[in-house]
Design a protein around this nucleic acid. Structure first.
Lengths: 203, 203
DNA sequence: CCCCCATGTTTACAGCGACAACATGACTCG
DNA sequence: CGAGTCATGTTGTCGCTGTAAACATGGGGG
């Protein structure tokens, strides 16, 4: 998916001058996020890698933050996709929810900079309060798994609480691990997640 | 506590040249953290406020990060103190643990920049794995409340799981709120925290 | 065919963290 | 009491950053 060219695209040139600079910058940014935190990525470094002057970036993004926001969106989408896939692969229901949670933490561990960025510069729209089909792809997996798991008769407020509960737990786990406050032990993560499934705790 | 002088201290001069520059910088940093995130605080701005040249800071901190780390430590200590106080005021036990958790989230909401900084540049020592009396003051409150609440017969691993569970939940809640992913509703926070108390969920 | 405008470049500026060389003044010791 | 040392603070500088303004260019639509 991410071609490895550091210079300008040649084949996929659908743009005008050079190539798809916007896309190239995003690919470069994601690549750099594998090696360093977002705050260490300079606009100029990305431009350099793209083989382009620093100010060319401003033709595609109003400022550095906007570029990072684009990377953040990509991160959210990847996370959401993995969660949905994991939930489906586990057959949905309780196992699906647990799998979705494990995937959430795993993603954070595997892509710390991207995970951090995804939330740090996320749009301030409260994902939990959006209707499911607009809730970005980020929380779709978790919320769908929870919705499926809860007794349909439950009032919406209880559903919301359950979703918040599950989300907070995995998010807290992820952040504490990333910040080095606790070690990453998959078995432990799994235990803690299972203990929180709706049904073990009252909604 | 934080005197409001922007120039050099006069009365509390226990230092040599000007005053207690190190202390002044920390006070200034905490003040600035009330108004902006840590990454927006420049070493030069702090020096300016202290009425001192930029490089004077390097006499007291090896670099900017070290100064921020000092602020982070202060944040951790404040948070820990508040938690212990809240737990004690609630009479310990289950109510104490819930109070400690509520205080954790509240602190984050009230001091977003300081809270973030406290974890972002925390020493990478896994607080949860330290003996209680060395565990900094950060997690003391939570862990003491949990220890008190759990049946003494429980094996240490179960205690650890319970602590991690509680900590993850409140930390996740706090971060999601700070990142604007969910709104801050004290009642909701309280509900979610109560649902996680050891005893509602199996350890 | 030509011109327009999206895309990219050059130049410039202020602010940043950090290093090296220098100044100063408070405390110590003879 | 006088000298000198060393912690503390200053000046000057460097390379880097984000970003604004003015200029260049070339591909596609009139």
């Amino acid at each position: 998916m991410t071609r490895k060219d550091n210079s300008v695209n040649i084949e996929s040139r659908r743009g005008y001058h050079h190539g798809d600079l916007r896309g190239a910058l995003i690919a470069i940014g994601l690549e750099m996020l594998d090696a360093m935190p977002a705050e260490a990525i300079s606009l100029r470094a990305m431009a350099r890698r793209a083989g382009v002057s620093a100010t060319a970036v401003y033709r595609h993004f109003p400022n550095r933050q906007a570029l990072l926001a684009a990377l953040a969106r990509e991160g959210m989408e990847r996370l959401g996709g993995l969660q949905r896939a994991a939930s489906a692969a586990a057959g949905g229901g309780g196992p699906g929810l647990a799998a979705s949670g494990r995937t959430y933490v795993r993603f954070a561990v595997d892509n710390p900079a991207l995970f951090r960025l995804a939330f740090a510069s996320a749009p301030a729209t409260a994902l939990l309060d959006l209707p499911l089909d607009e809730a970005g792809s980020a929380m779709r997996g978790l919320r769908e798994a929870i919705a499926e798991l809860l007794p349909p008769a439950l009032p919406p407020a209880a559903r919301r609480d359950a979703a918040l509960h599950a989300w907070s737990l995995v998010h807290g786990l992820a952040m504490l691990i990333l910040d080095g406050q606790v070690g990453y032990d998959p078995a432990e993560v799994d235990r803690v997640i299972r203990a929180t499934l709706p049904g073990s705790a009252a909604g």
